[in-house]
C-alpha cells in the first residue's frame, strides 16, 4: 500500500515536472513569436505591433503592409510549418521505431523538391491555376505521390518497418537523381531557383498559404492525439504491442498516410526545410520522455520553436538582408541538441 502510494507520488511529481516543461515551451514559443515579429529593418516596436494587430488603421499604410503582408504571415508560417514537421517527425520516428527517421526519410521532401524543380524548369501553364500556385501545387502533388507510393509499398510488403525505411530511402535517392538530371538540362537561373527552393525560405508566403498549412495541421492533429496511447504502447516494443492485440501494420499505414499529407503541405510552400522534423522530436523526447501524451505536444512545440527562432535569426543576423531559414534551422538545432545529449549523459 505504502509502495503504491510512493509510486503514485513519484509519477505525479514527474508528470507535474513534464507538464511544467510543456508550459515552459509554450511561453518560450510566445516569446519567440514576439521576437520574430519585432525583427526587420522597419522601426516597428512591440507596442506598435500589438496596436497594429488590434487596430490596423492606427498604422501608416506602409507599416500596415509591413505588419500584415510581411511580418505576420512569415512569423506565423514558421509556427505552422515547424509544428507540422515536429508532429510528422515524432510520429514517423515512433511508427518506424527509428531515431533517424523523419518525414524526409519517407521521400516526401525529396519528391516535393523534384516537383518544384519540374515546375521551375518546365514552368508549365496549368488551366485554372494561377501562375504563382503552379510551383507549390507541383511540389505538393509529388510529395503526396511519394506518400502514396510508400503507403502502397507498406500494404504490399506487409508493413515491415525496415523495408518501409529502405523503400523511403530508395525513393529519396531516385527523386534526388531525377532532380539532378533536371538541373543538368536547366538554365543557370533555373538551377539557382531550385537551390533557393531546396534551402527553404519563409518570406514568400502570404495568408492563403498560412491558412492551408494550419488547416491541414488542425485536421490531422486530432487523429494523432487519438493515437497517443497506442503510440506509447508501440514504443514499449512492437512484439508486446502485437501481443496486446494491436494491429501494428494497420496503425503504421494510417500514420504514414497522415504524416505524408502533413509533411507534403508543410514543405510545398516554403521549400525543403529539413532537420526540424528530425531534431524537434528528439529534443522533445529528451525533455519529456516517451509518453506520447506529452511527447506529441512537446514535439509540436519544439518544431515550432526551432523554426520560429530560425525565422527571427534569418532577419536579425544581417539587418536588411535575409539569410535563408533552412541554413539556420541546423545552426540553431544542433547546439540545443548537443547540449541536451551532453546533459543526458551527465544524468545517466
Amino acid at each position: 500500500m505504502q509502495a503504491s502510494a510512493q509510486f503514485d507520488t513519484h509519477y505525479r511529481s514527474i508528470y507535474v515536472k513534464r507538464l511544467s516543461i510543456i508550459i515552459g515551451l509554450c511561453i518560450a514559443l510566445v516569446l519567440s513569436l514576439m521576437l520574430d515579429l519585432t525583427a526587420g529593418p522597419a522601426q516597428l516596436g512591440l507596442a506598435e505591433i500589438i496596436q497594429g494587430i488590434i487596430d490596423p488603421q492606427s498604422l501608416s499604410l506602409r507599416h500596415q503592409i509591413i505588419l500584415w503582408d510581411v511580418r505576420l504571415p512569415d512569423a506565423l508560417i514558421a509556427l505552422a510549418v515547424g509544428a507540422a514537421l515536429g508532429l510528422a517527425g515524432i510520429e514517423t520516428q515512433t511508427i518506424l521505431n527509428n531515431p533517424l527517421a523523419s518525414p524526409f526519410t519517407l521521400g516526401v521532401s525529396a519528391l516535393a523538391t523534384l516537383g518544384a524543380s519540374l515546375a521551375i524548369v518546365v514552368a508549365p501553364v496549368i488551366p485554372f491555376l494561377p501562375n504563382n500556385a503552379v510551383l507549390p501545387a507541383m511540389a505538393l502533388l509529388f510529395a503526396l505521390l511519394g506518400g502514396g507510393l510508400i503507403l502502397a509499398f507498406t500494404k504490399f510488403s506487409g508493413g515491415a518497418r525496415e523495408s518501409v525505411v529502405l523503400f523511403g530511402i530508395a525513393l529519396v535517392f531516385l527523386a534526388n537523381a531525377l532532380t539532378a538530371a533536371l538541373q543538368y538540362v536547366a538554365s543557370a537561373e533555373a538551377v539557382q531557383a531550385i537551390v533557393f527552393w531546396t534551402i527553404g525560405n519563409l518570406t514568400k508566403v502570404g495568408w492563403n498559404e498560412l491558412f492551408i498549412v494550419s488547416f491541414v495541421f488542425v485536421c490531422v492533429l486530432p487523429f494523432s492525439l487519438r493515437h497517443v496511447w497506442l503510440m506509447t504502447l508501440i514504443r514499449g516494443g512492437e512484439a508486446q504491442a502485437k501481443s496486446l492485440g494491436l494491429n501494428v501494420s494497420r496503425l503504421r499505414a494510417l500514420v504514414i498516410f497522415r504524416v505524408s499529407i502533413l509533411a507534403a503541405f508543410a514543405v510545398c510552400f516554403v521549400g525543403a526545410i529539413g532537420f526540424v522534423g528530425l531534431v524537434g522530436p528528439h529534443i522533445a523526447r529528451m525533455l519529456l520522455g516517451e509518453d506520447h501524451r506529452l511527447l506529441v505536444p512537446g514535439s509540436i512545440l519544439c518544431g515550432a520553436l526551432i523554426l520560429s527562432l530560425a525565422s527571427f535569426l534569418s532577419k536579425a543576423l544581417l539587418p536588411g538582408v535575409i539569410i535563408p531559414v533552412g541554413i539556420l534551422t541546423s545552426v540553431i538545432g544542433v547546439p540545443i541538441f548537443l547540449f541536451l545529449i551532453a546533459k543526458q549523459r551527465k544524468v545517466s
Partner: peptide
C-alpha cells in the same frame, strides 16, 4: 549598402522601409 556578397535576398519590408527613389529589375 547592407549585403556582404554579389547578390542578396531581402523582404518586401526592406523595400518599404528604404523606399528607394528608383526601382529597377532585370527582365529575363
Amino acid at each position: 549598402a547592407v549585403a556582404p556578397g554579389p547578390t542578396s535576398t531581402h523582404t518586401e519590408e526592406f523595400l518599404l522601409t528604404q523606399d528607394p527613389d528608383i526601382w529597377i529589375t532585370s527582365a529575363s
